[in-house]
Amino acid sequence: MLHENERDLRETILRISAVDVRKCMKCGKCSGSCPAYEQMEYHPHQFVAMVDNGDIQALLDSDASFKCLTCYACTERCPRDVRPARLVEAVRLLKIRKQGQNHLKPDAIPAKLEAELPQQAIVAALRKYSK
């Protein structure tokens, strides 16, 4: 049995991500695809299994979700349409929320802007990085 807190966290992650972790058949194709595998403490298939087990705190304590490149290779290739990247994303979001929403504010962007920076990176940065 999961503690109430763990259950709540699990529910939150499932709600944010809209992922059905039970569809996973534990094939490992996601982690076989992941280009950030070596950098991530937990790998995409582990995100799926750990969310299923309610082991969310470990994911929150790890920086794995910030090492993900959001390349969606795992999601693109998963044969069961599980979309692990959305779980990674959900963990990241939950972490940011827990930090009191202290992620990058739009006002702070102009100062940091570099001409070379692609649009997408700015959008991703808003989502990902705390101050």
Partner: peptide, 19 residues
């Protein structure tokens, strides 16, 4: 035990990346 994520040619070899 694990699935292959991708296979790509490199020189005259094939690189098989998998779990």
């Amino acid at each position: 035990k694990g699935m292959v994520g991708k296979v790509f040619p490199e020189g005259d070899k094939l690189i098989v990346q998998g779990s």
